[in-house]
Simulated assay, not measured.
Amino acid sequence: MEVSGILTAIIFGLIIGALGRLVVPGKQNIPIWLTILIGVLAALLGTIVAGAFGVAETPGIDWIELALQIGFAAIGVAVVAGTYGRRRH
C-alpha cells in the first residue's frame, strides 16, 4: 500500500469514525486514535458486506455502503466506549 492510500484510509476512517460517534447518544470517552481505528475498520467491514450483497458498485454515491460503514462505526464506538470507559475507572 502506498503512502497516499494510507493517508486516504486514515482521513476516511476519521470521517466514518466521527459520523459513528455522532450516531451514538451520550459522551464517549475514547481517544481520537481509537475513533480513527474504529472508522477504518468499519469502512473496510462495510465495504466487504456491501460487496457481499452486491451493492458496493452502484452508479453515483453508494448510499447503502456508506450507511453500512456508519452503522458499523456506531456499533464499534458504542462497544469500545462502554468497555474503554469501564477499564479506565
Rank of each mutant, 00 (worst) to 15 (best):
V80I: 15
R87I: 09
L37G: 14
W63S: 11
G82L: 09
G39T: 06
A78S: 14
E57R: 13
E2K: 13
G39Y: 00
R87N: 09
L45I: 13
N29Q: 13
E57F: 15
L66N: 09
F12N: 02
L14M: 10
K27P: 05
I15L: 13
R21D: 02
I15W: 06
W63H: 10
F72N: 03
P31Y: 11
L68H: 05
G60V: 10
L44W: 06
G85I: 06
H89R: 13
G46I: 07
A43V: 05
L14K: 05
R21E: 08
A9T: 05
R21N: 09
L45A: 15
I70N: 02
I11N: 02
L44A: 14
M1Q: 07
V24C: 08
V55S: 06
A78T: 04
A43T: 12
A81E: 02
L37S: 13
G82S: 10
F72K: 01
G54S: 07
I75G: 04
G51Y: 09
A81H: 02
R21H: 07
I38N: 00
H89K: 15
G39C: 09
A50D: 04
L22K: 13
P59S: 12
I75K: 01
F12I: 12
L41W: 03
V77P: 00
E2T: 15
I32Q: 08
R21C: 12
G39H: 04
A43R: 02
R88D: 07
G39P: 04
E57G: 11
G5F: 07
W33P: 08
G20T: 00
G85H: 07
T58D: 01
I75W: 01
A81Y: 01
G46P: 05
G82P: 06
I61V: 14
I75S: 04
G85C: 10
G46L: 06
G46A: 11
V79G: 04
I32G: 08
G60E: 04
A42G: 07
G51Q: 06
P25F: 11
V24W: 02
G46H: 04
